Amino acid sequence: MALSAGGASVTQVTIQAPVKLNLYLHVVGRKGDGYHEVDTLIAFTDYGDSITVEPADRFEIVTEGPFAADLPDKEGNLVIHAVRALRDAAGFVGGAKITLSKNIPIAAGIGGGSADAAAAMWAVARLYDVDTKEKVDLFEIGSGLGSDVPACLFRRPCFASGVGHDLISAPVLPEAGVILVNPGVKLATASVFKARKGGFTPDGSNIEANLEKVSLLVSFLKNRANDLTDAAVKLCPAVEDALYALEQLPGCRLARMSGSGATCFGIFDDRAAADLAASEFEAPDHWWMQPMALAMPERV
C-alpha cells in the first residue's frame, strides 16, 4: 500500500473513544519481567472522548475540550505514537490532522489515552482504507503501545488476562446507569502497582455467567473486587471519599474504583436512575462527576 495524503479514500472520519471501566480487577500474578498479570472484566460506556481525522502531509494533533490542558506534550501523546506505528505497518505516505476532544480526566483509570489511541488508529485506517483484516493487525500494534489499547480496539465487553492483551468476549451486559467520580487527583498506574501489598487473587472470570440484568451483574461483581483499591487509597485518600459518596447516593447498587484509579463508579438500574442520583450529588468543586450508561460502542 502506498497511498499518499491525497489518496485518502474519505475526507474526514470521526470515531468516539468511550470510557473504559474495569468492573472488577484481580492481580493474579507477576511475570519475570516485572509486569503484573491481571484478570479483569472490561466494559464501555456511552460517554468519552472523540477523535476526528482529516488528510494531511504529516501527523499533527489539535486538542480541545475541558481536559485538553492536562494532556502531555503533543509529540509525547500516545495518539501520535499509535498513528505513526500504523503508518509504518501499513506503508502509506502522509499523515492526518487529528482533533482530539478531551472530555474525561487523564491518568484516571478509565482508559482515556488508550481509547484515544485506539480510536485514532481505527479512524486513520478508515481514512486511508487500510486493510485491517488481512494486511495490518491493529491489535499487534496496540499491544506494543499499552495494556489497555487492545481492549479499546476491541470495543466490546471482554475479560482481559495476562498483561491485559489476552481478550475473551464477555457475556451480554445490561444497559445499566453509571456515575463516574474523580476526586481531581492523577494516579500513575506504575505507582499504584508499586504501592500494592499482599498476595495474588485467583482468576475470577466466568465467560458462561449470565449478566444480562443489573441484579445479576451486581451479584457477580460483589464476589470480586479491585485489588488495586487499597494501594490507590494509600496514595490518594480521596478515592475512599469518592467511593463513600457514591455509596450514599439513592439507587446505587455497587460502588467501585476503575483500573488503577482515581476514578470510581457507581452502578444504577438505568440511565434515568443515574441522572436522578447525579442531580443530588454534592462534591468539592475540583471533583469531576458524570452520569452515563454501559453501552456497546460503534463497531469499526
Score class of each variant (00 low, 15 high):
132 T>K: 01
228 L>A: 04
181 V>S: 00
57 D>V: 06
58 R>E: 15
75 E>C: 06
122 W>H: 07
275 D>H: 11
188 A>W: 09
108 A>R: 03
90 A>E: 05
78 L>Y: 13
164 G>N: 12
189 T>G: 08
133 K>M: 08
145 L>M: 11
294 L>C: 05
194 K>G: 06
84 R>K: 11
39 D>N: 09
207 I>M: 11
1 M>Y: 14
286 H>Y: 13
250 P>C: 01
294 L>P: 02
290 Q>M: 02
39 D>R: 08
121 M>K: 06
79 V>T: 05
2 A>Q: 14
175 E>K: 12
54 E>L: 10
259 G>Q: 05
246 L>M: 00
215 S>C: 04
230 D>C: 08
42 I>H: 13
125 A>I: 05
260 S>Q: 10
70 D>T: 05
273 A>E: 08
184 G>F: 00
216 L>C: 10
213 K>V: 03
98 I>D: 05
139 F>I: 01
101 S>I: 04
19 V>I: 10
69 A>P: 11
110 I>P: 01
197 K>I: 05
111 G>D: 09
2 A>N: 14
214 V>Y: 11
60 E>D: 10
9 S>F: 06
198 G>H: 10
83 V>R: 12
259 G>P: 03
292 M>R: 05
57 D>G: 06
7 G>T: 05
127 L>P: 00
61 I>K: 15
106 I>H: 13
199 G>R: 12
56 A>V: 04
7 G>C: 07
152 C>D: 13
248 Q>C: 01
185 V>M: 13
2 A>C: 12
32 G>T: 12
116 D>V: 02
98 I>H: 15
216 L>G: 09
64 E>C: 10
185 V>W: 09
120 A>G: 10
170 A>E: 07
51 I>Q: 09
24 Y>H: 03
227 D>G: 04
70 D>A: 12
264 C>D: 00
22 N>H: 10
242 A>R: 00
157 P>M: 08
256 R>Y: 02
64 E>Y: 14
255 A>S: 15
183 P>K: 00
236 C>F: 06
235 L>A: 01
112 G>N: 08
23 L>Y: 06
41 L>N: 07
231 A>K: 07
211 L>Q: 03
48 G>A: 11
80 I>L: 15
182 N>C: 06
203 D>C: 10
114 S>A: 09
204 G>L: 04
201 T>Y: 12
248 Q>Y: 01
145 L>R: 08
55 P>K: 02
4 S>G: 15
118 A>H: 13
210 N>E: 12
130 V>F: 15
249 L>S: 01
264 C>M: 01
1 M>K: 09
232 A>E: 09
221 L>K: 10
157 P>F: 08
130 V>G: 07
184 G>I: 00
253 R>C: 03
108 A>Y: 13
68 A>M: 06
263 T>P: 04
125 A>P: 06
13 V>C: 07
159 F>Q: 08
299 R>H: 07
